[in-house]
Each structure stands twice: as C-alpha cells, then as structure tokens.
C-alpha cells in the first residue's frame, strides 16, 4: 500500500467510528520528548499522526502553536530533523499514516522535489501545507501524486461552493475542514454552524471530511466525530505537554474512548 492508499483506507469512514488524528510539533518541548509523545499518541489509539514542522512565521496558528514553534526553532530544529522524526517513528514500529504538516517556505528552501522524495523514503504518507491553496499548488500537488502520497486540501467556513468543489477535486486523501473562521487554538465552544458546514461539504464532495481547529475536549471530539469522518486535535495536546508526555497520551486515550463510545 502506498501513502495515499494508507491514508484513504484510514479515513474512509464506511461503517466505522470517526478517525482520530492528533497533531504534535517536532522539537517541542525538545526533540526526544516530541518523538516519545508522537509514538505515545500512536499507542493511545490514534489512526494517523500529523507531524508538525516548525516555522518562524506561522500565520494560521494561534498563540499555543506559535509558542511551540518558537521553542522548537530555538532548539535548532530544522526540516531535516522532521524527516528524521518520521523515520524514527517508523523504526519504532509506528505503522499508521504519518502526515507532515508545515508552511511552504521551508519546503521550498529544501527543494520541493527533493523534499517529497526524502519524506517518502523516510516513511511519510502525505503532506498538509496550510499556506499552499489549490490556486498555488499545481507543482507540489503533481510531485505528491507521482510519489503516491496524500495531499489533503483545506475547506473553511468562508469557502464558496465553487471553492469546496475545487478542494474536493484537488484533495488526495481527505478534506481538512477548518471548523472555525480563525486560527488554530483550543476553544470552549464549537461553531453552531459546524453541522451545516460539514453537510454542505459532504453534498459537494465524496472525499472524507476531517475536522480540525478548536477541538479541545473528548466530548467535543465525540460531537464532531458523530458528524464527520475524522477529528484533529493539536493545540490542546501542545498545552498539555507542559504537564509531561503522560498527560498528552492520557488525554488522547480519553479522546479515543469518546470517539469509540
């Protein structure tokens, strides 16, 4: 199975429960701990992992992930360390899809083609690039297609039916549905319009719909999981990391149980 097939098989819902994809950045609070946490999340029942790659100017991120990114950069973490993290997770026996998530400039600086090749060799299953919309991603998309890996596309509450259609056509793996008009970060309440947004997307595209941004409790994860094919949680896990890796993994288990209930 190539990366795309692995991702598609994971998120295609069929009659199963919603999938759970935690996000955690490489290098926060340090490289070794972030690797332990990512491996722990896989062990806690995650269906896929989103491997965060730090960037100096993360415009789609709220304060929690900005701060984590700065810590990682301060620790000297580069895109090369992120590739190494993917490889080490595979060595440790993690078999679920690993999606590398990061902004475009470090990928450009590495060289897009070389990066995709290196990532696939390391064991990555796909890429999520928030500042590379379909309008700008023809070249990168072709590279990921040749490599047989996933390249999900974003849909936001502001997306028109035409934009949702475009995302549906370009997405490989799933649609990453941004649940709120805003940046990443834990929120106390979910958008009241989320249900209608999810069904709007489902009417336009048959791609799996995975929802992220703002989900911060197992209860909210269950609510979203009842409507969508998958749930992404990031900022909440990063803020829990202050209490140690166990707190992150324990929380992930609770999310898993909530989604399975």
């Amino acid at each position: 199975m190539n990366g795309l097939e692995l991702v598609t098989a994971t998120f295609a819902r069929q009659n199963r429960r919603a999938s759970f994809m935690p996000y955690f950045p490489v290098g926060y609070p340090d490289y070794a701990t972030s690797l332990d946490i990512l491996a722990g999340l896989a062990g806690a029942g995650a269906d896929a992992l989103e491997i965060g790659m730090p960037f100096s100017d993360p415009i789609a991120d709220g304060p929690t992930l900005q701060a984590a990114s700065q810590v990682a950069l301060h620790n000297g973490i580069t895109i090369v360390d992120c590739l190494r993290a993917v490889q080490e997770l595979r060595t440790r026996g993690v078999t679920i899809p690993l999606l590398m998530m990061g902004y475009y400039n470090p990928i450009l600086a590495y060289d897009e083609a070389r990066f995709v090749q290196a990532a696939v060799e390391a064991g990555a299953s796909g890429f999520i690039v928030p500042d590379l919309p379909p309008d700008e991603s023809a070249g990168f998309s072709a590279l990921t297609q040749q490599a047989g890996v996933a390249f999900p596309q974003f849909v936001a509450p502001t997306s028109s039916p035409e934009r949702i259609q475009l995302a549906g056509e370009r997405a490989r793996g799933f649609i990453y549905l941004v649940s709120v008009t805003g940046v990443t970060g834990a929120r106390t309440a979910l958008s009241a319009d989320l249900a209608s947004l999810i069904s709007r997307v489902q009417q336009i595209t048959r791609q799996p719909v995975v929802v992220g941004f703002g989900i911060s409790t197992p209860e909210k994860a269950r609510e979203v999981g009842a409507l969508a094919d998958g749930v992404i949680i990031g900022s909440k896990l990063v803020s829990l990391a202050a209490e140690g890796p166990d707190a992150v993994v324990t929380f992930a288990r609770q999310v898993r149980q909530a989604l399975d209930a």
Binding site: I59, A60, Y104, P130, D131, L132, P133, D135, E136, Q153, F154, V155, A156, P157, T158, S159, S160, R163, A167, V178, T181, G182
Partner: peptide, 21 residues
C-alpha cells in the same frame, strides 16, 4: 490574473481568507 509579476507574487494564504481576497 493570478497576481504574478513574472516569477514573483501570487496568493499563498490559508483557505479562510482566499474568498476575501
């Protein structure tokens, strides 16, 4: 039409603000 000046320019932003642009 895509906001390019030769090889420079474009619109590299999160999907949320594409409709506003």
């Amino acid at each position: 039409e895509r906001g390019y000046y030769g090889a420079f320019g474009g619109r590299f932003v999160p999907e949320t603000i594409i409709p506003a642009l």
